[in-house]
Simulated assay, not measured.
Amino acid sequence: MLRLLMVGAGGIGGYYAARLLDAGHEVVLTARGAHLSALRENGLTVRYGAREMVSQPDVVDHQQLVFRYQPDDFDVILIALKATATASVANELGAWLGQGRSPVLSLQNGVDNEPLLAEAIGANRVFGGLAIRIGGHIVAPGIIEAEGVAQIVMGRWPKTGDRPDSRDELLQRLAAGFNESGIPTSLSDNIRYELWRKLVINNGVNPLSALTGLDTRSLTHHPEFAKVVYGMMAETVVASRADQVNLTQKDLDEMFELISNFNAIKTSMLIDREKGRPMELESIAGAVLRRCEAMGVQAPYTFLVNALLRASENRAGLR
């Protein structure tokens, strides 16, 4: 049995927590506001296709977490918050995390979460991770709907070294526990490479979907917008050179084919815009633009879409 802390009980964290709880693992969740109140009162309900998973986990806010638990009460601490919250969470929980040795596994969008966590608690305690082919959203406080294969890829940050590491045994345990819980999980010896491949997809469809209101399939099969998607993905491949990841044309074409054949889903950025919430622009488009600027190269597709979305946030008073 695994003992886990899921920091963030939104669409992604809530879905994975429900799977793990249903399989008999111990999972403590963090949440806030109306979602926190509903989870405490009615439990967690996750709808996935024709299946409905209902559980009664312990749910706390960050203040209660620090008061009631120690980091080493958990085998692993998972973070499934918006990437825009990583810096503030590292600051808010950094002293608490520093009291223990349990690894922290990020399941967030972008390529900047692991470096932030490594700076806060040390790279030897950071696992990189990504959720693939999953759409998950809170449809009402305490209720989540999810779809997709919902895979996880994880590994030591930033990649596995030549020497065996004590963390490898824990990663194997995690992967086994996740797979047995119905979460298809694999381990990577170069997780930074995997994170950049996912960013290729995220930058290709997330900002443009928020701008146009179209789902992923509509974008990738549109006669004009498909070219913009491909262009933004190509700019992400170029940006990867700044991190010495050096994605290739093969990576670009594989990621475009993957998202083109995926279910028609509303991206998280589109849903955030519809609900009037800040979007993960800095973590997705911003990550690409910062690196391209540092290398002195242009990213015109990403620059334009990002600028239009920033302007919309400014008009809405979200910046």
Rank of each mutant, 00 (worst) to 15 (best):
E274V: 08
S240P: 05
K227W: 06
R290G: 07
L309M: 10
L211I: 02
E257Y: 07
A287C: 05
E235M: 09
N261D: 13
R277H: 09
H221L: 12
A294T: 13
S283P: 04
E235Y: 09
V305T: 06
R277N: 08
K266L: 12
Q298D: 13
S209R: 00
C292R: 09
I271L: 15
R310C: 12
S312H: 14
C292I: 06
F256V: 10
F303R: 13
F303W: 13
L214N: 05
N263V: 04
S283F: 03
D253I: 06
R241F: 11
L211M: 03
M279W: 00
A226E: 12
L304A: 11
N261R: 10
A239S: 06
T267H: 04
H221R: 13
R273Y: 05
A210N: 01
A226P: 03
S218W: 07
K227T: 12
G296Q: 03
A210C: 05
Y230F: 11
A307N: 14
T216E: 11
I259N: 04
S240H: 03
A287M: 01
L270M: 08
D251G: 05
G286A: 09
V229C: 02
F262R: 06
V229Y: 00
A299I: 03
P300N: 00
E280N: 06
A264S: 14
G231I: 07
R273W: 00
E224Y: 15
A242K: 03
G296Y: 01
S218P: 10
I259W: 02
D215P: 11
S283W: 07
E224N: 11
F262I: 05
V237C: 13
D243V: 00
A264H: 09
S209G: 15
L211D: 02
T236D: 10
S312K: 15
F256K: 11
L281M: 09
A294L: 13
L211K: 01
V297C: 10
S260N: 08
P300G: 03
S218R: 11
T236R: 08
E280C: 11
R217F: 08
R241K: 09
D272T: 05
T267V: 05
K275Q: 06
H221A: 07
G213F: 06
D253G: 10
M279E: 10
M255G: 01
L258C: 12
V237H: 07
D251H: 13
T236Q: 00
E235K: 08
Y301F: 15
M232N: 07
V305P: 02
L309K: 05
C292M: 15
V305N: 01
A234I: 01
M232D: 01
F303L: 15
E254P: 12
T236W: 06
L289R: 01
T267D: 02
P223W: 03
E254V: 12
L247C: 14
A226L: 14
A234C: 06
D251R: 07
E257F: 12
A294D: 12
R291F: 05
S209Y: 11
T248V: 06
T302H: 15
E224K: 10
R217E: 12
N263E: 15
S312D: 15
L252F: 03
A311M: 10
A226I: 04
A210M: 14
E274M: 14
D251A: 03
M233T: 08
A226M: 09
T302S: 13
